[in-house]
């Protein structure tokens, strides 16, 4: 049967029954119609993703406006406590931001070196067949539900860490961050490896031709040549770490950091419980906050902060990519 969306096929029977010039004109017309229709459909599909993004931004902003009216942007950014459930609630985002920062740093300390080393090995050293088996297995790490990782951190990694540091609390950012780092490894390694493998062989040969060995070629020629793609992989890893919710909600203890202005560095210690922005948002969604009250609106303000932060990373990533892009 004739497929209705295929203009060329649809026009064929017509061609036999009418004079040639007319047939050609009618076929051109049909093609033009189908062409325009397809353009419209594809355009709509593309526009829908933008519409969803704009909708999210609109909701985030419109719901946080009443919050900022009540609390004030300055308090939000400078207050040192985040206690929305208290009788006298305080809404300082910094403790949550610090929680996000600390867990992200721990995760990146695992994921960036491990991901890069794995990428170098996969791209430059592993035999093709081994690479084709290792890569999908590694990518499975990203497919494990994050709540599973959360309990893995809480019930396996933290007890392990407690053998080293007996006074480590059950809920702590260190265990959560480490496990988050493991989860992010495939995001970093997979994209970095793709970038390194895209480096032309000619560049490697240039390095070997002046007496470079495999290690030198991989680390001093191929890796820097792939830096733009590797930077993109790092940014994706950072975004995943900043946005990760379940691992920190389960294993890091949902208790906002307490900032002591006299000892500001104490907040940077990952060996303590902490709440991230995402962990706060998810905890509120489970609780008994009424729609429209200020505690409810606080999650949108927190969400907006997160959105601005990730947007910042993506812009930074874009600039990095542009800066390091190599025309081989």
């Amino acid at each position: 049967m004739v497929q209705p969306r295929d203009a060329a096929q649809a026009a064929k029977p017509v061609e036999r029954s009418v004079p040639r010039a007319d047939a050609a004109a009618s076929m051109r017309f049909r093609r033009a119609v189908v062409d325009r229709a397809m353009q419209g459909v594809l355009g709509l599909a593309a526009a829908s993703s933008i519409a969803v993004t704009l909708g999210i931004v609109y909701i985030l902003i419109s719901e946080s406006v009443p919050f900022f009216r009540a609390v004030g942007l300055k308090t939000f950014l400078t207050d040192t406590m985040w206690t929305p459930q208290f009788a006298v609630p305080r809404y300082g985002i910094v403790p949550l931001l610090m929680g996000t920062l600390v867990t992200t740093m721990v995760a990146l300390a695992v994921a960036l070196p491990a991901g890069s080393i794995i990428a170098i090995w996969l791209s430059e050293f592993a035999p093709a067949r081994l690479r084709e088996t290792v890569k999908p297995v590694l990518e499975l790490l990203a497919a494990v539900p994050t709540v599973v990782y959360g309990y893995f951190a809480l019930l396996f990694v933290t007890p392990l860490l407690q053998r080293l540091w007996p006074d480590l609390p059950t809920f702590n950012m260190l265990g959560a961050g480490l496990v988050m780092g493991i989860m992010i490894i495939p995001y970093v390694s997979s994209l970095s490896e793709d970038a390194m493998r895209a480096v032309p062989m000619l560049l490697r040969e240039g390095s070997f031709a002046v007496g470079g060995n495999k290690i030198v070629t991989a680390t001093r020629v191929v890796f820097p040549a792939a830096l733009s793609g590797i930077a993109a992989a790092y940014v994706l890893g950072i975004s995943r770490a900043v946005g990760e919710t379940m691992i920190v909600a389960v294993a890091a203890g949902q208790q906002p950091l307490i900032l002591d202005p006299a000892r500001p560095l104490d907040a940077m210690n990952p060996g303590q419980p902490g709440a991230t922005i995402t962990a706060f948002i998810v905890s509120v969604s489970l609780g008994d906050v009424q729609h429209g009250e200020i505690g409810y609106q606080a999650i949108f303000a927190a969400g907006l902060t997160l959105f601005v932060a990730t947007l910042g990373f993506n812009v930074a990533g874009y600039l990095l990519r542009k800066r390091f892009r190599q025309a081989y």
Binding site: G206, V210, G211, P224
Partner: peptide, 24 residues
């Protein structure tokens, strides 16, 4: 030494490109 069909400088400075073999 070898010179290839297409120029294939390393993603480094002019100086480091030439110094590469010396360091090796």
């Amino acid at each position: 030494g070898m010179v290839f069909q297409k120029p294939n400088p390393f993603p480094k400075s002019i100086f480091e490109n030439v110094a590469f073999g010396l360091r090796m």
